[in-house]
Each structure stands twice: as C-alpha cells, then as structure tokens.
Amino acid sequence: MKFGVVVFPGSNCDLDAYHLVKDVLGQQADYIWHQEENVSAFDCLILPGGFSYGDYLRCGAIARFSPVMKSVVAFARSGGLVIGICNGFQVLLEAGLLPGALYRNLCLQFRCLFTHLKVENRQTPFTGGIEPGRLLKIPIAHGEGNYYADADTLRRMEANGQIVFRYATADGEVTDTANPNGSLYNIAGVCNEMKNVLGMMPHPERAGEAALGSEDGRLIFQSILKSWEGSR
C-alpha cells in the first residue's frame, strides 16, 4: 500500500508519520510537497501535524488554499482514504471535508500528554481492525483541539456514526476529567459521512513503537491496511 504524506510549510510531524508507515509498518511512502497537484499515485493520504504557515491566522486556514488541497478534496470525494492528524485535522475542517470546528483548549494552554481513546465506531476503514472494547493509549500535543459542532450537526453525526474517538479515563469512562481540552462530549476524532476521511487530534504516529510508550497508534494504520486490502 502506498501512503502519501502531505508537507505544508510548517508541517513538523511529517517525518513521524512517514517513519511509522514506512519503517515500522513496511509500507511504501512518499512526501507530497504542498505545490503538487496530482495525488493519484497514492492509496491513502496523511495530513500530518505541525503548524502550517505558523498557524498565524486560524489553524489550517491558510494551508487549505495550498495547490495540493484541490486534489486532496477530489481524492476524498472519490472515496480515497484521507487521515488528518492534529494540524492535519484542522486543515480538513477548513477545507470542508469534515464537520465542526476546533477552538483553543479550554485551559488556554498547549497540552502534551498521553490520553486514552474510546473507539465509538469500529465500522470505519480506520478502526475496523480494533477489537471491541479496546482502549487506545495515544498522546495529544496541541493548543487548539477543543472540538465544537452545533447541536443539529452533532445529532446527525451521532446518528451516522461519525464520532470515531472520545477521550476516556484509563478505565474507559468518558468523563470530564478525561477531557484534556474541553471538546464537546469528549470528541477526539470524527469522520465524514462516507467514512473515508478521518480527522483526529491525538497523534497515532507517536504511539507506534514500545520505546515511545505505546504501540496502540499502529492499530489505526493496520486497520487502514486491512480495509485497503479488502477493497482490492
């Protein structure tokens, strides 16, 4: 399977995503420079974390105008797999590929820490390989990850299974204390209606090797592999 890691000016988790899919999972991977206009060579696109354009406007608001984004949107609309992590999630929201918005963290500070994620929908290409009830230990590192969507949108998303991950305690309880940023209903990751585009604030690429404190992030990428193999 061939992954493409999109590099915007200011992306800084591109290396980590590339390392995980290429060196740890043994898949093909290439970087895609933000001025590229053709992404047809790839099976899955990763929009990595970082501070595209310094996040000097709203996070992701400038990156969505990068030349590459037109083809990312077309790729997604035609059913291609796209995963946006952290800043990548912010870019997907700005590009209109996912519903909702991200505010500044409720504490008004950057937060870097391990969180536990409850998998709310296992029927997506990103979660299909995860056993029922399995919690994922995956770190966050962001200043603006406080997820918001209006009540109607949320209702629609719930009904359609678009809430993919929620922050939980180590015992799997979805509580206020487990919520690191103030996200509505502890939402940590969401997908589009077609379920081929995922955006999440936690960094699965930082949880792919035992030496880093967790291997749970791999489960998401292994799910992607499984889904892709099944679709061929």
């Binding site: 800084n12 290396l15 980590d16 937060r111 770190p139 690429e205 930082r206 090797e209 880093l212």
Partner: peptide, 14 residues
C-alpha cells in the same frame, strides 16, 4: 511547565 511543551515531536524521545 513541561506539559505545555511538545516533548514528543520527531518521535525520538524515549
């Protein structure tokens, strides 16, 4: 202090 810093980016901090 340190939870305001990204101490993990580049995934080499063991």
């Amino acid at each position: 202090v340190w939870q305001q810093y990204d101490y993990m980016v580049r995934t080499c901090t063991v």
